[in-house]
Design a protein around this nucleic acid. Sequence first.
RNA 1: GGGGAGGUUCCCGAGCGGCCAAAGGGGGCAGACUGUAAAUCUGUUGGUUAUUCCUUCGAAGGUUCGAAUCCUUCUCUCCCCA
Length: 416
Amino acid sequence: MNAALQVLQDRGFIRQCTGLEQLSDLMDKEKVTFYLGVDPTGKSIHIGHMVPFFAMHHLQLHGHNPIALVGGGTSLIGDPSGKTEMRKMLTVEQIQENSASLKDQLGTVVDFSDHGDPSKGKAIMLNNYDWLGPLNYIEFLRDIGKHFSVNRMLTFESYKQRLERGLSFIEFNYQLLQSYDFLVLNQKYGAKLQIGGDDQWGNIVSGIDLIRKIEGNDSYGLTFNLITRADGQKMGKSEKGAVFLDPEMFSPYDFFQYWRNVNDEDVIKFMKLFTFMSLEEIAEYETEGRNVNEAKERLAYEQTSIIHGKEEADKALSAAKAMFSAAGAASTESLPSITIERAVLEAGIPVIELFAMTDLCNNNSEARRLINQGGAVVQEKKISGIDVVVDASYLDGDSVLILRAGKKRFFKIIVE
RNA sequence: GGGGAGGUUCCCGAGCGGCCAAAGGGGGCAGACUGUAAAUCUGUUGGUUAUUCCUUCGAAGGUUCGAAUCCUUCUCUCCCCA
């Protein structure tokens, strides 16, 4: 098999392909331009969206040319695939705004620069609003719509499900638009391959059919496994909500912790999918008797460096180590914090109030509950009851108080 | 266009005049056990000046001593027929 495809295969990306042998031959012969669509439905993408982009990264390294297609036009419609309910429709302004931040985030994995390295593919980013926006409905129906059979579309799994619950016409058209995207990219940019999550299979196949009917050319589709966690949870969902790449929405420390706490069974799989570590290196972590926690730490470190940079990864790693090693709160630098005046502390603060001030508790009731249940800790001293008042004596000569809720949630109070 | 069923707390879903801040499950949080894992068990899960008061059962009015529950209008969703 072609070297690039082999990498994807070995790392566990590939789910299905419209013609693996032919595609492999093609990729041996030439550098293939391929594309992947993303809908800018939110301010930030989360890691669940990143799998195909890691695949894109590997293909780019092998000299193939990626196109990241921002769905400025299609997200005005909303893809029904894999959704049980209709999506909220976004305004044009929201979508333009979202698209802007997308490139930065994808840039962590795919190189969009003019790197000038001939062995590496050249990546570009396009927005399908550019051609979908000006579309004329009548022309579109005559030129494109006539190639689609409703009977056939209804047999697609993605639509079948929605027929149970209701599918609006606007969503039904999504497939035509995505197919049209592939056609346009094929005509103008020579794209011959579309990649995506396996939920995109139907849409991809339709695009290939459309290109064959209109251009008479062969093109290919390649889909990736939809990644699930061993506990059945969706990838990228955490207690704190979706694991966003935007550091404002999801801190690098929490991001690190998300990976640090993956299920045992998932570690190796995720190393292959979400890091650039070599397979040989990953294999070392698979050996019998190897401590899984080392693997998790490495996974968390690698993944955090890719997305947030090495510096943030180092910070997160040392903060995590400090927090979880025996009573040593050495590096508390990256903890979330607030500042209070020394006089206030000296006067004494009821613990309920103290915890309610922090991000650890949203309100007094939560703080009260936490304390009653024995989960509140100040400076590694367990709070015995809700009547406790925290004052300067807790400082121990230091100028910060470390609060802890449960085992893993920390907060720092700086005293001035 | 006609007919029917519905909108309940983070989610699903019971409740159909007072015993309802609202069963049950999921999720979350905390405790036990652990490896910062999983599984399991226990407690907890609207806010508060905490045995008090306030806000919440699609929206707005109304009936009643008292409404998530009854009535009116509006609104949204789903299903069947055309």
